[in-house]
Design a protein around this nucleic acid. Structure first.
Lengths: 274, 274
DNA sequence: TATTACCACTGGATATATCCAGTCATGTCA
DNA sequence: TGACATGACTGGATATATCCAGTGGTAATA
């Protein structure tokens, strides 16, 4: 309906956006929480371009009618979308689609494979190393493993549309993931996180990440088409499962131009004095 | 009181934690939202060590009694704390304090000054450049300014406990922040964001950030005590205010060892198929 | 003694209900 | 004509209420 003073044009646009959002509606049979379904529906509308750039979303109360859920559920979904940088809220006015939300999101805790597909890019990989060995303290300690414990190391060159973009090395407790080393890691769509989930029911839910930079090694430069001296963006992460046990340690070396990281931020109310 | 089977010891510990959290309670007179006050109270208890490492928090329903607010308000605060990496939730069990939540958080949208103080470090700065000039397109376009618009550029070497850690360069529309150039930017605790807020009532609420790496220039190497060839972590950000107008563009060059970025992550439910 | 059934408790999800402070078009009044 | 009051609408905050699926201790049972 829009505010009392709406012109016909504005009302029409509003209805159009409402239809765009409602597109793939939600279902009570779907095991996912309602707020996730709403989140997905709105995100799909944005990413498939059904909502115009800088478009205004239907109001929360309209969305309640469109989706047939309570306002709390709508707000939960909207809060996530704002937090992820897809939407922006303007109190008293409405929610607006944020433009220029592009680039490679920090894909930690998500698999490279997933992130690539979400960006409509074709993920690929080349196996560099896959073996089990007795790891040094720098590796075993962060994983809460006893000194000398056997560790499965998996090193891969990651490609996007056949272009090398990042070198990824993972360490996992060998005892916890038996048989993982026997898989065909040369396969283009073999995802470590998918295997962990499906074979071992291990799901990382939390991560501690450190971002920095360093010079490339000669081997890395060769793999990433860089000419030394050159810099790489490094991302080191330890992931934990729901029971707070370390799952894996990941070290990434990013090609600075081909695979920078982008990040959307929105304040949570923390910006205080001083 | 804790679960029916609690031992005396556990009950005592639980009561202790409850007392620790309740410490600086909340007030209806405080203009801040209740969930922010709860958030702050729990965060203070964690950071001041009143909650033991890996300590278990009182349950949501206990916190309802402790703070005298509804469960929704408690959950709102808890969700933020989980999202920020301070807490971890274990359904069926409770909330636990996350260990090893340290390092320099991504301080985008927050001032360097703030972040430093929050880490109990002494922030400092050395003015490198402060002038108004007609900026090239690479600067004016992201700020939605017409070509040839006058831009205020502020370049500073940032110090932590007198050690140079990052070079920060900011660009702002000169017309929007008249007089900003006349301030004494050599002062150690002069904060750009504080001045924006207090003098012009401008508050960035959203940011689009790109992280990458590159080689240091000679001048930067000199300022950061690096020896070329060396790499720096770069952080480029455009900040927007509540009305979606660009506020400033910031470019940071981080010393890779002295000022890496750390980031806590927790899944929001996005980790899906494939 | 080992196993199992029970049950209190936990976080998670959701509905319904107010109240508030902004925003903005409209229409009235000086 | 221009300033102003009105009122519909917005997101934000909060309270109270259920229901659910895990978790883990206790007590009954084999």
């Amino acid at each position: 309906m829009g505010p009392m003073g709406s012109t016909d044009l504005e009302t029409a646009a509003s209805d159009e956006n409402a239809a765009a959002v409602a597109h793939g509606s939600i279902s009570r049979e779907d095991p996912r929480p309602l707020h996730r379904q709403v989140h997905g529906a709105i995100l799909a509308a944005i990413e498939e371009g059904r909502l115009p750039r800088s478009g205004k979303l239907p109001s929360e109360r309209e969305l309640v009618d469109i989706f047939g859920v309570s306002r709390i559920t709508i707000r939960h979904a909207m809060r996530d979308l704002v937090q992820q940088g897809f939407l922006q809220s303007q109190p008293g006015k409405g929610f607006y689609v944020v433009e220029g939300h592009q680039g490679f999101e920090l894909h930690l805790l998500k698999s490279f494979t997933n992130t690539a597909l979400a960006n409509n890019r074709r993920p690929g990989q080349r196996l560099l190393d896959a073996r089990i060995y007795r790891a040094p303290l720098e590796i075993t300690r962060p994983l809460f493993l006893p000194p000398g414990a056997e560790v499965f190391v998996l090193s891969r060159l990651r490609l996007l549309d056949d272009v090398p973009v990042v070198i990824q090395t993972d360490w996992l407790s060998a005892a916890r993931v038996p048989g993982l080393i026997d898989l065909d890691w040369t396969s283009d769509n073999r995802s470590l996180y998918a295997e962990l989930r499906e074979r071992f029911h291990i799901r990382p839910v939390r991560g501690q990440t450190t971002l920095s930079a360093r010079l490339v090694t000669e081997r890395e430069a060769d793999l990433l088409d860089l000419v030394p001296p050159a810099a790489v963006l490094t991302v080191d992460q330890i992931a934990f499962d729901g029971r707070n046990r370390p799952v894996n340690m990941t070290m990434l070396a990013h090609h600075p131009e081909r695979y920078p990281l982008t990040l959307a931020q929105s304040e949570t109310g923390d910006i205080e004095q001083i």
